[in-house]
Structures are given as C-alpha cells and as structure tokens.
C-alpha cells in the first residue's frame, strides 16, 4: 500500500489553540471598543482612588524633635551661659510635615508639658497638641494655632492666666510666649483667630467648659505674644 498523503488539518491541535486565542482577542477588542468611550470618564475618576502602593493605616508618628540647649535664665552670671541666636536660617530648619512631632509645649503654671505636633488630626491630638496646618510654626512670624483635647493634654489650660509664660521647644530653637488674653468663643466664630496676621502670635484652644460632660459649641482660646526666640530668616 502506498503512502497516503493526508492533510488532516482538523486533527491539527494547533487550531484548538490559535483559533480560540484569536477569538478571545477579538471579543476583548470589541468589548474594549464598545465600552471604553462611555467608561472613560468613570475610569479616569476611578483612578483617583488607586495609589501606586498599598495604603498605610499605621497610627505611628514620626518624631523629628531634637532638643536644643535651654535659654539661660535672666540675670544669671554663669560664665558658661550660651546665648541663643537671634535668627535662624530657614534653610537650616527641617520644616515639619503633618503628623510629625517637632517640639514640646510647656506651661509650668498650668502643669502642662506635652508633645507638639504639626497637624491637628486624630493621631496628633491623641498623643499631644497640634498646630493647625493652615497656620505656621514658631519663629515664622505668623499665626501659630494649637489645638488640644480639654480632657487630656490641654486640661491645664483651665489654670491659664494673663502674664503666664508658654515655652515651645523645637529642634531649631526655644521660644517663650506670654499669655495676653483668654476668651471663650463659639467654635464657628472666625473673629477668634486671624490666619492672615503678619506678626507672630500664638493661639491655643480647646473645648470648653473643662471637666464637663457633653459636647459644647464653645472653645477656650488662650492668646500669646512672642517674648523670645530666634526669628526664622526666610531669606537664607
């Protein structure tokens, strides 16, 4: 029997791979062409909700505070006293990010010695007191607005009186403020603060009344003026 030439292409297994692949690409291509024009907007908006990496839910915070030498007491005659610089270059400062501890706030007369954060969110106020991110840091020459819980870190503000000293220690300098005014205002009262002020002023606030049970609309504002501390030189 002679050899038969056969071309049983239908038995060629390749058709069972190539054809389905071609079909698949066609199907997906058609779906893409049909769906994409109308879905483009949704996909673009949806991309807002996806990052380049997985979300971090940690409540840990970064601490960039490194204490500098204390200011010498007035009237001391120590030979070794170190004078604080009058200015500090902006370029030498590590400006804090939201959520970072960058200093400490001390009001001795109010038994307050707490961590100072930049930002006033959940983590910051659960660990200390925090500067509103729409205000600035000590030495910058503008408004410093600090929030704290009245039942915890700012409970001592109830003892605040005009004339008391507020110390803020940072990695770039130590600052002293003097309390100039105390007011009780509604939380929605915008006259309680001036974020556009071009002179350094300190505002500390917390919920009011203290040691009360319930949620109140009033806030306890404590205002202070700068007494000493290096001015941040923005030009250097």
């Amino acid at each position: 029997m002679s050899k038969r030439k056969s071309s049983h292409r239908s038995m060629n297994g390749k058709n069972f791979i190539i054809l389905p692949i071609i079909f698949s690409l066609l199907i997906l291509g058609i779906c893409y062409a049909v769906v994409m024009p109308s879905a483009r907007t949704f996909i673009k908006m949806g991309s807002l909700f996806f990052s380049d990496s997985e979300k971090n839910f940690s409540n840990d915070y970064n601490n960039i505070f490194v204490p500098v030498a204390e200011e010498p007491e007035e009237g001391t005659s120590e030979v070794s006293k170190v004078e604080e610089p009058k200015t500090v270059p902006l370029s030498s400062i590590e400006y804090p990010k939201i959520g970072e501890q960058f200093g400490e706030l001390i009001i001795e007369d109010c038994q307050t010695d707490v961590k100072l954060f930049f930002g006033d969110g959940y983590v910051e106020l659960n660990n200390g007191v925090g500067i509103y991110a729409g205000s600035f840091i000590p030495g910058y020459g503008k408004t410093i607005m600090i929030a704290g819980h009245n039942c915890t870190f700012f409970n001592g503000l109830k003892y605040a009186k005009v004339g008391q000293k507020v110390k803020i220690r940072t990695s770039y300098g130590n600052y002293t403020y003097e309390i100039t005014d105390i007011q009780i205002k509604n939380a929605k009262d915008k006259s309680a603060y001036d974020l556009a002020a071009q002179t350094e002023n300190l505002i500390m606030y917390t919920c009011y009344p203290f040691d009360a049970l319930g949620f109140y609309p009033d806030r306890y504002f404590v205002y202070g003026k700068l007494v000493s501390g290096p001015v941040i030189d923005k030009k250097s």
């Binding site: 054809l19 389905p20 979300k55």
Partner: peptide, 28 residues
C-alpha cells in the same frame, strides 16, 4: 472552540487584575 475561547476570556480579566495588584492599591 467556543468553550476554549470562553475559558480564556473569562480567565483573562481576573488574571490582569491579580497581576497588576490594583485591588490592593485602593486608597480608602
């Protein structure tokens, strides 16, 4: 042919999603 194609098209979508890891990168 039809069933193989269906299997491929059904499997492609989740494969692309899993390989890209996009689900875990959602910002919620």
């Amino acid at each position: 042919y039809a069933f193989i194609t269906s299997a491929i098209t059904a499997a492609i979508i989740p494969t692309i999603v899993y390989v890209s890891g996009i689900v875990a990168k959602v910002n919620l």
